Amino acid sequence: MGKTKNDNFANLAAAAAKATAEFRQGLAAIREKIYAAKKERSRIAHLPVDLETAENRIADWLAGELAFSNRRGSISEYFLFPDDRFERRKPDLIGNFEDKVRYYLAKTVAEQVKCDCADALRGTECITEDVRTKRLAEIDAEISDLERAEERLIRAAEAAGLVAPRRADASPEALLSEDDDTVLSEVDRAELERAEERVRRIAGGGSHEATDFDGGPILEMA
């Protein structure tokens, strides 16, 4: 018995559904990479600095504290004044004495803070600011490439007549980017091209109504 129109329609619908499901997997794979890269970025951004950096900060703080608390000079001269002058200068002595307490305690506090920092960093991943800056720049570039690849894939889906959902936090730069300015690794590019091929298979499967293949909130484009 020959195939009926209903059979042909069912076959086309099944093929489109399969291709749509495969496309969803491709889009999800790119988004998983985006989420993973953003998570890594947050981790790197919040790592503590290394002990050397902390000790340099403590040294800078100590130098400023010593300079401030020693601004009035020695207090020994007060105790060498004649009685009448000593009595007149007692109010000054009180203020200067407080500064001297800060001056002598500052060194002790600085050494203790160094020990506390070393204890806090023991067994903990830390990073220099130069390395942090470099890693964040690398991750930002990776996220940018992935988001442009995501947008390229969504545009391909829309060209095939599908309603392609955009993330609510989609990058404005990616939304406005040109199709050919995405720089990806060979693995990511191959994955993107496979996903685009799935879109072409959907488009070639016959006319059909627009399909939302993500099921989540859709950010409609003006």
Rank of each mutant, 00 (worst) to 15 (best):
M1F: 01
N6Q: 11
N8F: 01
A10Q: 11
N11T: 06
L12D: 11
L12V: 03
A13C: 03
A15D: 15
A16L: 02
A17P: 04
A19Y: 11
T20R: 12
A21V: 09
E22F: 01
A28G: 07
I34A: 00
I34Y: 01
E40Q: 14
S42W: 00
I44L: 06
L51H: 10
N56K: 12
I58N: 09
I58D: 07
A59Y: 06
W61A: 06
W61L: 02
W61I: 01
A63R: 15
G64Y: 00
E65C: 13
A67Q: 12
R71W: 01
R72D: 15
S76I: 05
Y78H: 14
Y78E: 03
R85Q: 09
D92E: 12
G95D: 12
N96C: 02
E98M: 10
E98C: 06
A106F: 02
A106W: 04
Q112D: 08
D116H: 10
L121F: 01
I127H: 04
E129K: 05
R132W: 07
A141K: 14
R148S: 03
E150R: 08
A156C: 04
A156H: 08
A156Y: 02
A157G: 14
R166Y: 07
S171E: 08
E173V: 14
D180F: 05
T182G: 00
V187E: 08
E191A: 12
E191Q: 10
R198K: 10
R200D: 13
A203R: 08
A203E: 11
A203M: 01
G204E: 07
A210D: 07
P217M: 06
